[in-house]
Structure formats: structure tokens, C-alpha cells
């Protein structure tokens, strides 16, 4: 059965490009435009195997989303990758401290993205 991935980004281009890339790669993909909508989707019953989130978003950013997801039952160990234009060490450290699994800087080539996902999602 296909692994489920939740992509969170306020850019329609990012959502569409990553969603299509992952769907072609064989994954089932859901999208949300910010952290709040992502949390709502999870609370509605969507249980992702992996979350890929932007950092700077309106309403709720990626860092706050990671913090909230880690508090949800069953999602404590779900891999979360940040996909952002932020490249500095301070932000990466903050993400790591909050529970992110990895840090990816935009833009990420489709093949590279699939390779990284296979690393954090064994058997995918």
C-alpha cells in the first residue's frame, strides 16, 4: 500500500510541484496551505507516514506545526522534513530541537527528493 505524505506550503507552485513529483513516485499525497490547515487535516483522521513542511507560512509556520505534531498521539515519531528557502544553521538547529527529521533547502530536484524520502521512510 502506498505511503501517505502530507505537504504543507503556502506556495501553490510548491504544493503542485512536490505533490506531482511524489505521486509519480508512487506516494499518496495530501496538501495543506499552512500549519493550521495541516493540523486540521490530521485531526480529521488523515494519518501521514511523512510530513514535508515549509517554515515561513501565514497563520501557523512550520516550526509551530512541528511542535504541535509532536504532541499528537501516534505522530511522535512520524518523520518531518522541512522544505524551505531558509538555509542558516540557527534555523536548522531550532528545527532539529523541535523534532524535525531533516532540513531541505528549496529548490530540491525531484530525484533527490525521492531519494531522501526513501531514506526516512524505509520500505517506501
Amino acid at each position: 500500500m502506498s505511503k501517505k505524505i502530507l505537504i504543507v506550503d503556502d506556495s501553490a507552485t510548491m504544493l503542485m510541484s512536490v505533490k506531482n513529483n511524489l505521486e509519480i513516485g508512487g506516494f499518496m499525497v495530501e496538501t495543506a496551505e499552512d500549519g493550521l490547515k495541516a493540523l486540521a487535516k490530521i485531526k480529521e483522521g488523515f494519518k501521514p507516514d511523512l510530513i514535508i513542511t515549509d517554515v515561513n507560512m501565514p497563520n501557523m509556520g512550520g516550526m509551530e506545526l512541528i511542535k504541535n505534531v509532536r504532541l499528537l498521539p501516534g505522530l511522535r515519531f512520524t518523520p518531518i522534513l522541512t522544505l524551505t528557502t531558509e538555509s542558516q544553521a540557527e534555523k536548522r538547529d531550532e528545527g532539529k530541537r523541535l523534532g524535525a527529521t531533516g532540513w531541505l533547502v528549496k529548490p530540491v530536484g525531484g530525484a533527490d527528493l525521492l531519494k531522501i524520502i526513501k531514506q526516512v521512510l524505509p520500505g517506501a
Binding site: 510541484s17 513529483n21 509519480i24 529548490p107 525531484g110 533527490d112
Partner: peptide, 9 residues
């Protein structure tokens, strides 16, 4: 196509 989708980012 995957690379193209990456460049679109």
C-alpha cells in the same frame, strides 16, 4: 520530469 518539477520550485 522529476527534475523539471524540482526546477519549477
Amino acid at each position: 520530469i522529476a527534475e523539471l518539477l524540482g526546477h519549477i520550485q
